[in-house]
Design a protein around this nucleic acid. Structure first.
Length: 578
DNA sequence: GTTAGATTAAACAGCG
DNA sequence: GCGCTGTTTAATCTAA
């Protein structure tokens, strides 16, 4: 280990300007400097505190001893003691951390070739950014702006410790202190309200639970949480690794967010253009009742297109090739709607539905899904994957403003569909009859081939590749076992998605065997399991096997909504909506 | 033009 | 008898 020395800002400037060091080397250098600066600052602060203490003691001696002052003095002394302990601990932590980093190869301070897995940080870091970083390390950082996550590096301890140099102690200092004993807790109490605030807003603590990824240990109060944090999540290999994972997760999410933002922007601008176009050649797929449309058209100026999700405007999902955009010209296109895209393109209802849920709730727009798809969705959203007819009705009215009208019509259609389609299985339950979905049958139901533009097919294949040949049976069992492969979290998280994909790939191998054996709706996974009586329907359109690569695209779609199920559990069941 | 699927409407039966 | 549930049939529309 070379003996690091503090570089002056000027020297640093020079280094940066000359660009003699690689980003990795710079990063190492920065860290070293950071550590050194912190140590210096700590020492200085400690020195100052001691001087102050001396001064106070002297003053006290001169002024004579009063009980109150004596008490104060004792407090100060206790604080000093606690602080000394903290200081010692900090230094140990620092060293330990440096050692850990070194051991893990995260930080190589050997003069040879420093390698850091912090490339994401160091790489692509322009000198300006480095200077900023340098400024932060050396300059006027306060306890507020030098927080642990400021640099989003692994160097948690050092960064946090830096704030100890400031009069305003930050959380970590106090957290360390609190573990050291009562005296420090006293210090804590005397700390400003900012700490109190921080206590309540600690990102790793909430609702009495430690929120360290994968931990969820129950901590009754904040001190016990701190104790737990220090004991269980100390600076060790595991924590560092977890930190690294978290970093990656955050990065992925940020990436995803930026992509989605871009996409949103593109959609907005696209919609904006469309809405101002005098003529929209293709018919919109989603038609809006005249009432809603007049409202939307009058209230929403083209500029106000970026709506909140709760605003009943155009659905967000650009699922179809043609624009599913409500244009001003489409106002007059209210009439019988026959186009449904969910089945036709084997596009999941849930992906569109989830995104436009609020829209359908508020706007009297006919959802572009078949009755069968909607019924299935409703059933699958239910906690037990089964609904009574009345509950299905309720789901329809709850989820779609459109179905709050003409009840007789659509209810008849619902009943008709339930009876007609083999995929809906009526099960006699204790409390009556409930309807469930036989996924296998549902997938078999519409074996239409995807036609249309290659881009559409490609989009479907890419965007829903994760749902591909996973059989309904497997999903059902996964759902039953609460395998979180298709949770919303995993949907939006590429990292988790890749994990899920990996697992799915394994499972698909198994499923290929089972599915190739023909249509076996294995009784083990059947929704009829545990039911008293089942009426099996004979659907005339019992097609041959359609095991084309896309025939099962919709298979997994319901699953992202599992999380949402809970939303409705709490809702009071409205038995009579009509 | 044909065909298949979806929608709508209606009739009917069983049940509480 | 009434309303709900469930089944069935037929007409119509749409898209492939």
């Amino acid at each position: 280990m070379m003996t690091p020395q503090v570089i002056t800002p000027q020297q640093m400037q020079q280094i940066l300007q000359q660009q003699v060091l690689t980003p990795q080397q710079l990063q190492v250098l920065l860290q070293q400097q950071q550590a050194l600066m912190l140590q210096q600052q700590l020492q200085e602060f400690y020195k100052k505190q001691q001087e102050q203490l001396q001064l106070q003691l002297l003053q006290q001696q001169h002024a004579g001893k009063q009980p109150k002052e004596q008490q104060q003095q004792q407090q100060v002394a206790t604080q000093q003691l606690a602080f000394q302990q903290q200081l010692l601990q900090m230094q140990q932590l620092q060293q330990q951390h440096l050692l850990t980093l070194q051991r893990q190869g995260l930080l190589s301070i050997q003069p040879g070739q420093p390698t850091l897995p912090l490339q994401s940080l160091a790489q692509g870091m322009i000198p300006a950014e480095l200077q900023q970083l340098w400024k932060e390390v050396t300059g006027s950082h306060t306890a507020d702006d030098v927080v642990c996550n400021n640099h989003s590096t692994l160097d948690l301890s050092t960064t946090c410790v830096s704030s100890t140099a400031q009069p305003k102690t930050s959380l970590l200092l106090n957290s360390q202190a609190s573990t050291n004993g009562q005296a420090s807790v006293l210090t804590l109490k005397r700390e400003s309200s900012s700490h109190e605030e921080y206590t309540h807003n600690h990102p790793l603590y909430g609702h009495g639970v430690c929120k360290w990824p994968g931990c969820e240990t129950i901590c009754e109060d904040f001190p016990s949480f701190l104790k737990h944090l220090n004991s269980e999540h100390a600076l060790d290999d595991r924590s560092t690794a977890q930190c690294r994972v978290q970093m990656q997760v955050v990065q992925q999410l940020e990436l995803q967010l930026s992509k989605d933002k871009e996409r949103l922007q593109a959609m907005m601008s696209h919609l904006h253009v469309k809405s101002t176009e005098p003529k929209a050649s293709p018919q919109p797929l989603n038609l809006v009742s005249s009432a809603t449309l007049s409202k939307t058209a009058s209230e929403a100026s083209p500029q106000s297109l970026p709506h909140t999700p709760t605003t009943p405007t155009a659905p967000l999902t650009p699922i179809t090739q043609g624009p599913s955009v409500i244009t001003t010209t489409s106002i007059h296109n209210v009439g019988p709607i026959r186009r449904r895209y969910s089945d036709k393109y084997n596009i999941p209802i849930s992906s569109d539905f989830a995104q436009n849920q609020e829209f359908y709730k508020n706007a009297e727009v006919r959802p572009p899904f078949t009755y069968a798809s909607l019924i299935r969705q409703g059933i699958l959203e239910s906690p037990e994957k089964q609904l009574t007819l009345n509950e299905i009705y309720n789901w329809f009215t709850r989820q779609f403003a459109y179905f709050r009208r003409n009840a007789a019509t659509w209810k008849n259609a619902v009943r008709h569909n339930l009876s007609l389609h083999k995929c809906f299985v009526r099960v006699e339950n204790v409390k009556g009859a409930v309807w469930t979905v036989d996924e296998m049958e549902f997938q078999k139901r519409r074996p239409q081939k995807i036609s249309g533009s290659p881009t559409l097919i490609k989009n479907i294949q890419t965007s829903h590749a994760y749902c591909s040949p996973l059989s309904a049976a497997l999903q059902a069992s996964m759902a039953e076992n609460s395998l979180p492969l298709y949770t919303t979290a995993s949907m939006g998280n590429p990292a988790l998605n890749s994990l899920a994909n990996a697992i799915r790939e394994d499972l698909n191998g198994v499923m290929e065997h089972t599915s190739s054996n023909g249509s076996d709706s294995s009784p083990g996974r059947s929704p009829m399991q545990g039911m008293h009586q089942v009426h099996v329907k004979e659907e005339p359109l019992d097609h041959d096997d359609n095991d084309g690569p896309l025939s099962l695209v919709t298979t997994a779609n319901h699953s992202p909504d599992f999380d949402r199920d809970r939303d409705y559990e709490d809702e009071p069941v409205n038995d009579d909506m009509e």
